[in-house]
Design a protein around this nucleic acid. Structure first.
Lengths: 110, 110
DNA sequence: ATAACCTATCGTAATATTGCGATAAAGGGA
DNA sequence: TCCCTTTATCGCAATATTACGATAGGTTAT
């Protein structure tokens, strides 16, 4: 064992978990914040802003791309990354309904 | 290496990452959904609802407690878990501002 | 006291993640 | 063509996470 048993959970639950992983590491949070503020966009600029080695940043960018929350446009020899607004909106919607679910229900248990 | 270099990131970034970890595993998403819907609250009921062994569920509950998003009240011999509304509100606020930040900015880069 | 029940913890195994040096790949310009 | 710049990938090491059987701990009921 050691691997997450994804097959026993719903599509929705797995998607939420995947989207959350985009924010589950401070380096990725920093990258996303930089992309939003547009203080950086090109991979090299991100490396300059972050106290991490270039391969490490590249790996985090790859993970964010896998999740779909960013997209990269090659502009040789650079690659310009930006937020994928469609997936960002999905995350907004998903976390919005999850986090607002508590409001509609009433806590009466313990 | 292999450990996250938490010391080089801001408190805020590390807190966001930690809160996101609560949602970064489908089992924890399922647990939180059950706690919200109050289909279960007692540890044993959660184990019944989830296709995971009791120690595994207990471990996820421990992680959620570490983050602070749930709290457990012992009601011997049971333990009744529920959402910690204060931290849940923190998460709502944190993810809300992060996910809404894109709206205020305008995407003009790539 | 002992039995029964419920949950936590320990120990272990398997897999995943994080980080980085070295190196490859891809394109532009001399 | 040969470099130069930039990014991706490989390979490795260290640490973290996930999962569960076995067992311990704590409380109630008998």
């Amino acid at each position: 064992m050691g691997a997450t048993k994804t097959e026993i959970f719903s599509e929705q639950q797995n998607r939420i978990a995947d989207l959350a992983k985009a924010f589950a590491h401070p380096a990725r949070v920093a990258i996303l914040q930089l992309l939003i503020a547009k203080k950086a966009c090109v991979c090299g600029d991100l490396v300059d802003e972050l106290p991490l080695a270039q391969p490490t940043v590249s790996q985090h960018l790859k993970e964010l791309k896998r999740i779909g929350i960013i997209k990269g446009e090659i502009d040789p020899p650079r690659v310009c990354y930006c937020i994928n607004e469609t997936v960002w909106e999905e995350a907004r919607q998903v976390f919005g309904s999850l986090l607002n679910a508590l409001m509609t229900e009433k806590t009466t248990c313990c």
